[in-house]
């Protein structure tokens, strides 16, 4: 056994130890994520409820606090219906792919200075690979369900996801150019050289493009055409029920966390705060980084809900026109301008 561990580049005792540390980290990340997803649904219903002058869930527990648990238990006991016309194997695999793609994206997110599951030097590339994998679950579920609604939803969704992925990739290339790295930890550290400590101000154009693309990538309103309930019922997962539906739901909400974390890491300085603030108020440096990280991530998640409560759904031709005719040229132009400015200074 020692020889195998030796070829893995690890000492035999430290291998078990490292494996344990990694497993504990993964357990913490998954547990926190699941708790977050449960209460993100509650938070969303409350936020949208209050924005529409309603109260949101109030019945289950004080202020409806036990509502997410009740929903989870209900989904757990629901029947798992697999239509006779469906392509059974692909139909059953598709939700697993959805949850796999988003959950494994969490591996490279640096939550604070020393807490990440893996610190690999192609972090952004890995995140793109995983978000592209998410498109497979949409196509697989849309095709295998053998139903008109899911077929149309799957087609629309895959075209939308691939279109906006290009704009998102171009907007993040400017960030890589500024930081000179694909490693998310190094990107956060590179932002500390400015007194305002974030790429948000020099790269405001890239940030706006990134956020619009992130809404489209996670299929959230105003770009939730794949699920447009007034025309497609629920889009690509119309035939799913019970726990398999819950996995798609889980995938969507973890996807929102991943996109918000990516926005925070690349544009908002991750777990750090602007150096000017720590110089003016030295006590701020005693607050652990995870605090700032969570505040920034929750601001972005709130933004998802805020936009959902504010904007109506886009028309499909306008959606594609926005992606191809506006976001891609703007992101490319921003990239060229960034590279010229970086060369001059």
């Amino acid at each position: 056994m020692n020889e195998i561990f030796g070829t893995l580049g690890l000492q035999n005792t430290s291998f078990i130890f490292q494996l344990l540390i990694v497993l504990v980290k993964i357990a913490v990340v998954i547990a926190v994520t699941m708790l977050h997803v449960a209460y993100a649904t509650y938070f969303e219903r409350k936020v949208i409820g209050h924005m529409q002058v309603r109260l949101g869930p109030m019945r289950v527990g004080p202020h409806g606090l036990l509502q997410p648990i009740a929903d989870g238990v209900k989904l757990f006991f629901k029947e798992d219906i697999i239509p006779t016309a469906a392509d059974k194997t692909i139909f059953q695999i598709a939700p697993l792919v959805a949850v796999f793609a988003t959950l494994s994206s969490l591996a490279v997110i640096p939550f604070f200075e020393t807490f990440y599951i893996a610190n690999i030097n192609v972090g952004i590339l890995y995140l793109f690979a995983m978000s592209s994998l998410g498109a497979y679950s949409i196509i697989m579920s849309g095709w295998s369900s053998n139903s008109k609604y899911s077929f149309l939803g799957g087609l629309r969704s895959s075209a939308q996801v691939v279109s906006y992925e290009i704009a998102m990739a171009f907007s993040l290339v400017s960030i890589m150019l500024m930081a000179g790295s694909l490693n998310l930890v190094e990107i956060v550290q590179a932002q500390q050289q400015y007194w305002y400590g974030m790429y948000l101000f020099p790269q405001i154009v890239a940030y706006v493009v990134f956020m619009i693309a992130a809404f489209a990538e996670t299929n959230r309103t105003p770009f939730d055409l794949p699920e447009a309930e007034s025309e497609l019922v629920a889009g690509y997962f119309v035939e799913y029920s019970g726990m398999r539906f819950a996995l798609f739901f889980l995938g969507e909400y973890i996807g929102m966390i991943v996109m918000s974390s990516l926005a925070v890491v690349c544009f908002w300085g991750g777990w750090t705060i602007p150096p000017i603030l720590t110089q003016l108020f030295p006590f701020l440096s005693n607050i652990p980084g995870i605090f700032w990280f969570i505040i920034k991530v929750y601001f972005h998640i709130f933004l998802f809900y805020w936009v959902r409560a504010t904007l109506p759904r886009y028309r499909y031709d306008k959606l594609m026109a926005l992606g191809w005719k506006i976001l891609i040229p703007v992101a490319l132009g921003n990239l060229v301008v960034t590279s010229i400015i970086k060369y001059i200074f």
């Binding site: 893995l8 580049g9 690890l10 494996l19 990694v22 497993l23 980290k25 993964i26 998954i30 757990f76 006991f77 629901k78 029947e79 798992d80 939700p95 697993l96 949850v99 796999f100 959950l103 494994s104 969490l106 591996a107 490279v108 599951i117 893996a118 610190n119 690999i120 030097n121 890995y126 019970g242 726990m243 398999r244 819950a246 996995l247």
Partner: peptide, 28 residues
């Protein structure tokens, strides 16, 4: 070796999804 934790998380996330469906299969 720095990709090793990524591999473990991938395996765990597959097990997580499968586990939810299989455990649900006992009660639904």
């Amino acid at each position: 070796t720095e990709y090793f934790p990524v591999l473990i998380l991938m395996l765990v996330s597959i097990a997580f999804g499968l586990g939810i469906i299989l455990i649900g299969g006992l009660v639904r």
